[in-house]
Every structure is written in structure tokens, then in C-alpha cells.
Write a protein that binds this DNA or RNA. Structure first.
Lengths: 224, 224
DNA sequence: TCGATACTTTCAAGATGATGACGGGAGCCG
DNA sequence: CGGCTCCCGTCATCATCTTGAAAGTATCGA
């Protein structure tokens, strides 16, 4: 979660609420600062002030959309202006949603959740139920047929991603990007190992067969 | 893969690793030399040293971005300077990623792979339905009359191609080009074998007759 | 019937995935 | 501080599956 906002008061407001909602938050005071941060690791979502010193928010958004690496970053605009044309311009420049100041903390988190649900389901706190498994991100618990399952951190994220994107095949590379993060460089084989560990854990309730190997392609999480 | 780098040691390091990773590598000691090479054939990607004799790396990058023919060439910067401003300027001038010296071979190839991956055109994930068969690239599943069919990697690609181009006859040579990729040298008879394997797989639901032999010409996938 | 063309079967080499083990690092506890 | 545990990424090895080619058989068309 990256918040690009120059007014300290607003920044603080957003910070408190996002942290409270369980998100990790990074800040930038300007577009330039934001770029620096983005060059490191990619956040899951960007909250962007429309009015920034130096570079306008929508120009920055367009820039993000123009670069391959940041093209798919969800963006939420925060703006004080409410005219229709701004809304239009905002959405045209690639925003996923926008908030008009003043906004309630609840509205902020609600919109973030909505955007994430649409763009990256595995980043929300929603409980996922599928194939006889129930995964609860908020409590970090997984239950299979009533019994709790014991997963390590990585296995949990991997399972969460799979359960949020069932049936679809993912290559090892895609999984590394999605589950480990975009600027992480690991051996593809590492995925195999974690798949194994996840299967081991799931086998406690016989759910290990939900994870299918698609030879030559990757892995797939079977729906029920 | 074009590497623009004036230091022989670094050049050698990069060369060894890229070759080992299976890439063909060309070199240039300066921007001018690089231009000469680019006037010939376009590489898939350019690894560019930030500090070059004569012309600075970022100026060269901008130049590449300005010309239509080289606009879409992925560029990875190699730099010894680590200041934030350099990272910014580098990416602003159109780099897709950058490496800071010293870097590990693994990191180099990983970033190259990542950049190429991002540039690669999205494989069409559209579901293809025809002749009672349903092929879904996203899930990598094929279903005939409700029953799932089991195909190997090559058979899957072959079927995908056929279903995407029904009713048209393809020679063995064309199929080799389209399904295996041009520049592979295989016996034409090998196609027969894979056709057989595909028919075998399809016969599980009686769809094997969708693939017709056109004697003296090749094969054709029948619509329904 | 004959020659050309296609179909099948078989096989070894090469890919690819599964598995068990290892060493290191982060964090925790005493 | 140590010592310990947990978890992670990597590797070597083993088991399996795919693949391409070869060779024998079947079929087609003239």
C-alpha cells in the first residue's frame, strides 16, 4: 500500500486507518518520491492525491500505466475537486476508483477493499471457502473438514492465492511474482518445494489432491 | 541480446552468464558501436551501461526511445552509482529495469527474464469451443461432451492450433512451424505420430474423427 | 498390382516433477 | 548473550512422463 500525499494531516489520517485495517503502508510526499519507492518493491495498491506538488496526480497515474511493470497496479485517487470532468479525467488516466475529500475512514477502506477484490482477491481479508477448505486471512487460519491445518507463512500465502484463483493454471514464474513478490529472484524449483510443503500440510485432511500438477505448465488448484 | 559496456571485465562476465542462460549475445563498446549493430538486426533486449565513453547511457536510451524502430526495445541499465536520482533518471529515460554493480549472475538473468516476460504479448487465454470440444488455455483443460480429456503438452498445443484454425488444411511443415515453432528441425513424420497421439486422446469421447487426413497435403480440423 | 503415403508400435534419450536433506538466517527464550 | 526452533531457498537424486525417430504395417490411388 503506497500513499502519495503531500498534506501531513491527510497522510496521517490515511495511515492510521490503513494500519488499523491491517495493511502495511509506505508514504511518498511527491510523485518523484513515489517513483523511488516503486523502483524497489511494488505495493499492492496506490492511493494517489490528485493535487501534488510538481507533478499532477493524473500525469503520474498515466506514467504508471505506461510502464509495463506498474501497469497493473490498482490506483485510487483522492481529490478535493468534485467536478464531473475531474472524475472523468481521473478514471481516464487509469484510476480504479476515486475518493472525494472529505472522506470517512470507512469509505476509504471500503473502496480499497472493493478495488482489491476486483483486481487482486487474495489481498483482501475475505474468508475463502472452496473445495472443502476454509481459509481465513484475518485469523490466519485454515480449516479442512472441521480440523485446523497447520501452515507456514509461505504455504499460507500460496494457498490463499490458489484458493482465490481456482482452476487456472499458473506457471512457477507467475507464482513467484504473485505469491513471493515482483522483485524477488528465486529459483523456479523453489516453487516445487513449497508446493510439496503445502501438499504435506493439506494431506492431514486429505485435501492435498486439490493442488494439481500440470506437467510442462505449472500448477492448478482444483475447485472441489 | 545486445550488451553495451566498455569495461572488458564486466562485458565478459555478462557474456558468460547470458550465453549460459541460452541467449545469443552481441557486444558494443560504445553507443556509436551499438547504433551500428542496431542498424543491422534488432536484439530482443539491450543491456546498457550507464557510464559510457562519449555518450552517456541515458542519452542513448532516450535516443532509442525516440526512434520508432527501437522504441519498444526493452532496456536494462547497469550502473555503479546507487544514488536515488540515478535510479529515477534511468527509469525516466525509458529503462525497463536496472542493475547496480556489483550484481550476481542470477540477478542479471532473473531481471532479463522478468523484463522479457512483461514485454511478451499476452497469450490469448480465450476459450475455444468447436465441434463439441471445449479447450480452455487458462485452465489448460479440454472437455469433450462433459468429460475431461487428458492431453500431453504437445498434443494440447496442436489441438489448440487446430481448433483456432478449423476447416483449413495444413501441411506437416506448416504444423511444425505453427505448433513447434519455426526454426525447429524435425522429421515431417513426427507430425504423424503426434496426430496419432492426439487422436488417441480424443477418441476417449469419440472426437478423434474431427481430425481429418488430407492425403498428399496434410491435416484438417473439421468444424463440428 | 505397384508405389506412394499414412498409420502404428516401439524405444532410448531427454525433460520435467517429486522428494529428502542441508545450511543459513530470523526471531524467541532462557 | 548463547542456544534453539522455525522456516526458507537450494541442491542432488530418483521416478516418470514426453518426445522424436525409426521401422514395420496398412491403405490409397492409378
Amino acid at each position: 500500500m503506497l500513499v502519495v500525499e503531500d498534506e501531513p494531516a491527510i497522510r496521517e489520517l490515511i495511515a492510521v486507518n490503513l494500519r488499523h485495517a491491517g495493511y502495511g503502508v509506505a508514504f511518498a510526499r511527491s510523485a518523484e518520491e513515489a517513483e523511488t519507492i516503486l523502483n524497489g518493491a511494488l505495493p499492492d495498491l496506490v492511493v494517489l492525491d490528485w493535487m501534488l506538488p510538481g507533478q499532477a496526480g493524473d500525469a503520474f497515474a498515466r506514467k504508471l500505466r505506461a510502464q509495463a511493470r506498474t501497469r497493473d497496479l490498482p490506483i485510487i485517487f483522492v481529490t478535493a475537486r468534485v467536478e464531473e470532468r475531474d472524475k472523468l479525467a481521473g478514471l481516464e488516466s487509469g484510476a480504479d476508483d476515486y475518493l472525494t475529500k472529505p472522506f470517512s475512514p470507512r469509505e476509504l477502506t471500503a473502496r480499497i477493499k472493493a478495488v482489491l477484490r476486483r483486481r487482486a482477491p487474495q489481498l483482501t481479508d475475505d474468508v475463502v471457502r472452496i473445495g472443502g477448505l476454509e481459509l481465513n486471512p484475518a485469523t490466519r487460519r485454515v480449516i479442512g473438514e472441521g480440523k485446523p491445518l497447520d501452515l507456514g507463512p509461505t504455504e499460507f500465502r500460496l494457498l490463499h492465492f490458489f484458493m482465490s484463483h481456482p482452476e487456472r493454471v499458473y506457471s512457477r514464474t507467475q507464482l513467484l511474482d504473485e505469491v513471493w513478490g515482483d522483485h524477488v529472484f528465486l529459483e523456479e524449483r523453489t516453487v516445487d518445494v513449497h508446493i510439496r510443503r503445502l501438499r504435506m500440510a493439506l494431506s492431514a485432511t486429505g485435501h492435498d489432491d486439490l493442488i494439481e500438477t500440470v506437467r510442462g505448465t505449472g500448477y492448478r488448484f482444483r475447485r472441489g
